[in-house]
Design a protein around this nucleic acid. Structure first.
Length: 579
RNA sequence: GCGGGUGUAGCUCAAUGGUAGAGCGGCGGCUUCCCAAGCCGUAGACGCGGGUUCGAUUCCCGUCACCCGCUCCA
């Protein structure tokens, strides 16, 4: 992973692209007139077309062009148990900590854990920062660390639960602080803030009766009781003997007790917005298997919205809390998952490159063992070289039989396939009943939109008719992705040319090809505008059209024109779109 | 969330403690036979809230959003 992109993007490409997206109607900030909503974006008229086209291409390739993949369209809200079974309720929450010195945020479970007795040097980025941090530490914690270049020393891991400051030559620490056993990963600082859980799932309440009514009433009653713990115990009965409520009561902390009580009171109404579309494919595995006539190896595909409370959102539509996925769960025989992984890796990479001007910007990256999600035993990302460096676009994960087994265990419903023809490799007996292994190509649809916008964004130096230099901006979108396929332009707004243009556009619409007539401003401006929104072809109606029934057909990328008969032009474009 | 930066028409920018201009773009009209031509007209902005002040777009505070970094992952 590099943080310096080597891809040859124009200067400030993101800034220009975001501006173009707004100006031309691809992407707007959500709720902009009210000040905007963090990381939420709306797709305008052109963006909606682009996203639909991209997703339609995926569906066509993954579902319609294969006889062993079927699609579903599941609800976003699922039974809460789904997320407990899948591990998202527990595992999708990361313990995050802020370093009080460097201000870095990191995951506690991945931080280095020095041995008891070890020195805890803080390695600062440079001498200047070292001086600054040493002063901060002195001011805030009252100890003067020794400073040698960019290293601050004198801190030591005193025990598993304490670290301290040991002045040079001293045997015992002059001062100690509580410690959770790890240090900030980049600089090694042990001065850390609290560990906080970030649950990445969106919660919502299901049901027309607001659970807060009951919460308010119960809290009013419980807090009036002289002995809160006793009142809570009698209200919740056995629930008070387990889980968060039990530990809260033991702690004696009123705040924690009330917090746990609220959790229990609201639990019956709590639901989650799905953090991935995948789980519906596992949960409906049996229904699809029985109704579709499929048998392994086969896939279930789905496109749709998912929601995650991302810790940080960034890079325009790259990471947002509400996003759209294109996922497929491919169920295969245990033992064949490696071959299928190879197959889907190839398929998916080919698909991404098919629509790209810069196929070299796509690359695989295999996950290291320690970065695999809780459900995966192997994973390859399709990375794209964004202007800020490589980043994920699609993850192709080997999810083993984890999900189906989890749901089988928790639902009590067998989620297996019985192969009448094959013998169980373990027993040698027919039939073989097994839990399929799963390969999951999971692509970001909204990321795909950004990727193809970036891939298509081109700037060219050109000289105007007046002899001035200027930049021609062209969105070299693949014709199948382009929002508008054909611009139909009367050369001038007279002599019946606008009417002729309308008639030609109608021919395209009748064939389901999106064509727009544009008769505003000069012909040059109209060409430039359509170049900028990625319209691959422009048809111009001129004087000759009215005489011999031919038009000029202009290519967006070369700006070259050929004369074709009106009668043939729709078929010609239709054929180009098929290619 | 933390640290740093930013916030003036659709876009790119300007000016100002006395309520704001331009270029491009938009809309309407005229003109125009091929790559952002010209003419006329027209609409449109100080992110939001509070404070200081006689008066705030300008100074202060808060908030919201965006950008960069940390973390995350489709």
């Amino acid at each position: 992973m590099s943080d310096q992109s080597s891809a040859n993007y124009p200067a400030d490409v993101m800034k220009k692209l975001i501006s173009l997206c707004k100006q031309r109607g691809f992407v707007f900030q959500s709720s902009e007139i009210y000040g905007g909503l963090k990381s939420a974006y709306d797709y305008g008229p052109l963006g909606a077309e682009l996203k639909r086209n991209l997703m339609a291409e995926w569906w066509r390739d993954m579902v319609h062009s294969r006889d062993n993949v079927v699609g579903i369209d599941a609800s976003i809200i699922m039974h809460p148990q789904v997320w407990r079974s899948s591990g998202h309720a527990a595992g999708f929450a990361d313990p995050l900590v802020d370093c009080l010195v460097s201000k870095e945020r990191f995951r506690a479970d991945k931080a280095p854990r020095p041995a008891v007795g070890a020195e805890l040097p803080i390695t600062c980025p440079d001498k200047g920062v070292a001086k600054d941090w040493a002063e901060q530490i002195e001011k805030r914690f009252g100890v003067a660390l020794e400073r040698d270049g960019n290293i601050l020393s004198g801190l030591k891991a005193v025990s598993a639960t304490e670290f301290g400051f040991v002045p040079k030559g001293a045997a015992a620490p002059a001062q100690v602080w509580p410690w959770r056993g790890y240090v900030e990963p980049t600089f090694g600082s042990p001065f850390l803030g609290d560990e906080r859980q970030f649950n990445l799932m969106f919660r919502t309440a299901l049901g027309s009766v607001d659970p807060m009514n009951e919460v308010a009433a119960e809290l009013a009653r419980l807090t009036a009781e002289p002995d809160l713990a006793a009142a809570v115990k009698s209200r919740f009965g056995r629930a008070a003997d387990e889980g968060a409520l039990k530990t809260a009561i033991e702690s004696g902390d009123r705040g924690r007790i009330l917090r746990a009580a609220i959790e229990l009171l609201t639990a019956p109404a709590m639901a989650y917005l799905r953090p991935e579309t995948a789980q519906a494919m596992f949960v409906q595995f049996k229904n699809v298997l029985e109704s579709s006539g499929q048998k392994p190896p086969f896939g279930i595909a789905q496109m749709g919205k998912s929601f995650r409370n991302e810790i940080t959102v960034e890079h325009f539509i790259f990471r947002s809390c509400e996003f759209e996925q294109m996922e497929m769960e491919f169920f295969c025989e245990p033992g064949t998952q490696k071959e299928w992984m190879q197959y889907w890796k190839d398929q998916r990479m080919q698909w991404w490159k098919r629509y790209a001007n810069h196929p070299e910007r796509f690359a695989f990256r295999q996950h290291a063992k320690d970065e695999l999600a809780h459900y995966a035993d192997d994973c390859y990302d399709v990375d794209f070289e964004y202007p800020w460096g490589y980043g994920e676009l699609e993850g192709i994960a080997s999810r083993t039989d984890y999900d189906l087994k989890q749901h089988e265990k928790n639902s009590g419903v067998k989620l297996r396939y019985t192969d009448q023809e094959k013998a169980d490799p373990a027993t040698g007996k027919k039939p073989w009943q097994y839990t399929p292994y799963v390969i999951e190509p999971a692509a970001g649809a909204t990321r795909g939109v950004l990727v193809y916008l970036l891939d298509a964004y081109h700037e060219e130096e050109r000289t105007t008719a007046a002899g001035e230099k200027e930049v021609r901006t062209v969105l070299k979108l693949h014709p199948r992705l382009a929002p508008i396929k054909v611009a139909v332009l009367p050369l001038v707004k007279k002599d019946g040319m606008p009417e002729k243009a309308d008639a030609i556009a109608a021919l395209f619409r009748a064939r389901g090809i999106l064509a727009k007539v544009d008769e505003k401003a000069s012909i040059g401006k109209r060409y430039a505008k359509h170049d900028e929104i990625g319209t691959p072809w422009a048809i111009t109606v001129d004087g000759q059209t009215l005489e011999d029934g031919t038009v000029t057909l202009r290519d967006r990328d070369t700006t070259e024109q050929v004369r074709v008969a009106v009668d043939a032009v729709v078929d010609l474009i239709a054929r180009k779109l098929q290619a």
